[in-house]
Design a protein around this nucleic acid. Structure first.
Lengths: 344, 344
DNA sequence: CTGAAAGCGCTTACAG
DNA sequence: CTGAAAGCGCTTACAG
């Protein structure tokens, strides 16, 4: 900037004003300055600007576990929304314990992020951080800012499976402590037909006994007449598909399987998995906009206000993506009654 | 900091020296300053430090596509290695075209990152950026800094499958333009038994004709006597497993399937997928250390040197994780000859 | 419409 | 061992 000022014989202040388009510079001079800036390959120092304005132009993203298969979708959506708003994204992983989450947030704040998007760990509560925060989890989470309407997503699944003729449902979740999973499963239950038979399988409980990656005992359910398998995410749905398929069950002829999240592989396995997709772009946009609103307001009003926890509780609707794992089962007639005896 | 200085009646310079442990402060005063800092909850402004020292303490991470299933592993490893070294990580997605990659790098540089880790898009070459860069791709990529030894990984697969008795191999890749995939497939080919029969399936070519998610024609291979399916990553391996399973093939009794990368679901599907794992922690550490070495050197020597492309070409060995998809096939006797006729 | 001055919070020679 | 001073590159009242 000083190089431009020197080359043109004007002041740094004028260069700054011209480049930021804040008016108060004659159009001709402004044009000359812009040209010279381009010519010199001028790149403003965002660091200096940050120091001066107190705004870094960077948002933090704290995730419970970067290794989570859903992470790519979230990170991509947040990165996009932030980039569109001219913000960078600093990532932090709270993998491990809840203390790590606190540390991760601290590290981010040391770096003067203007706001933080956090996907909290089970059962943690994000209090007032002294910095704008948007929480993405589930509407059931205290302090939640925005999330998919997981309950409604569960209802989508129930309606879909019931519409196919199913009356015997196995609901598959990993951990009953997860608000997201509880919402999904609760939503499903709330919409099952009156005469439905339901059993819930909690994977972590089974694995605690039989070890990770163990069979889920789904063939036992099949033998007991269950035909619909609704998992709380695609990873579990995939596990169900392979477990059933391996045992010789034909999907969707003999059983339907549905998942959540439309993870990377879901459309590409055989048969492709029917799933309920989150509108991550919408969620990210709401989260980022909520953050920006608080940031702008902080800047405008009394800065002593400090960190403000956002509390909008936006619920973004989910959409069902019907694929092959839930084609019409050959075992049902159009009334939904079983017409073949091979599976009672 | 000035608050500490004021509270103690010393200068900011002394506070700075005490807190940074640069010596030249009496132990007693230093201790008093540290105590007061803790008491006041002092958090240094990394922005100010960055402006003054010219180092932001932030590394950039540019990925070809955040949506890629391998991304979590990479991001996590880099975030860890960077955090251990006291650095933050700014992410950028070059999703879409090669121009986006250039833009992503520019945005990162505007934010004064001290160095950039880039996983380049197919066929792009990362030149001198005027900032330290570490490229992670494959040893066959020009400018590569560090990567897994994908060729050796391919050899691991070939040895493993040949050792099981297989002589008829289907190699599955997505895109022949990818250096990584070419290395993996090349490595496999280089170690197949002399009398082996080999066919390569390129998924993108098939999908260009039959649409995304279409069958890969694997049953045709089975009918023509192929028994070993070696995919260039777990996503394709999973696709092969489900396609074969769905058609009634029992894995591993009638066919073996092997993948790469040990993606999130690989250990949890049924049967669990045998795969070759990358040592991401080692790769990330080498990449980050390479960056730090250049950054420190820039700081010590002539800063006019500008950006230096690192050229170490470290190859990190891969390891095979044998799981159920490649148990000993029942169709082979101990000499590796077919003993059952059900699959010729 | 343009410029001189101050200051964001640090660090780093340089004096004392 | 400690402090006064300058400066990193910007922006923003305030004058002129």
């Amino acid at each position: 900037m000083s190089a431009i000022a020197a080359a043109l014989g004007v002041s740094a202040a004028t260069v700054s004003n011209a480049l930021s388009g804040k008016g108060r510079v004659s159009p001709e001079l402004a044009e000359k300055i812009r040209t010279k800036a381009a010519e010199l390959g001028y790149v403003p120092s965002l660091t200096a600007r940050a120091l001066r304005t107190g705004r870094s132009g960077v948002l933090g993203l704290v995730l419970p576990n970067i290794g989570n298969p859903l992470f790519p979708q979230i990170a991509q959506a947040i990165e996009n929304a932030a980039a569109d708003a001219g913000y960078g994204v600093l990532i932090a992983d709270s993998r491990g314990n809840n203390n790590m989450q606190t540390l991760a947030i601290q590290r981010l704040m040391e770096r003067q992020v203007d706001g933080i998007v956090v996907v909290p760990r089970f059962g943690t509560r994000i209090g007032d951080l002294g910095c704008p925060v948007a929480v993405i989890d589930s509407p059931s989470t205290p302090g939640n800012t925005v999330s998919s309407d997981h309950w409604q997503g569960g209802q989508l699944v129930a309606d879909h499976l019931a519409g196919l003729g199913h009356r015997n449902f196995v609901l598959i979740g990993a951990n009953p402590q997860s608000n997201v999973q509880n919402d999904r499963i609760g939503g499903m239950k709330s919409r099952l037909p009156k005469d439905a038979r339901v059993e819930v399988v909690w994977i972590e409980k089974i694995e605690a006994v039989s070890g990770p990656g163990c069979p889920l005992g789904l063939m036992d359910k099949i033998e007991r007449g269950f035909t619909a398998f609704a998992a709380s995410n695609d990873l579990h749905a995939l596990r169900a598909v392979t477990e059933l398929q391996r045992a010789g069950i034909r999907i969707p002829d003999q059983a339907s399987v549905v998942g959540f999240d439309d993870l990377a592989w879901s459309s590409v396995v055989s048969p492709a998995i029917t799933t309920v997709r989150q509108d991550m772009a919408a969620i990210a946009e709401i989260a980022v906009n909520a953050l920006l609103a608080v940031i702008d307001q902080e800047n405008a009003e009394i800065p002593e206000a400090g960190g403000i926890a956002i509390a909008q509780h936006d619920r973004v609707p989910m959409t069902l993506v019907a694929r092959q794992t839930s084609g019409r089962p050959a075992i049902f007639n159009s009334q939904g009654n079983t017409i073949k005896g091979e599976i009672r």
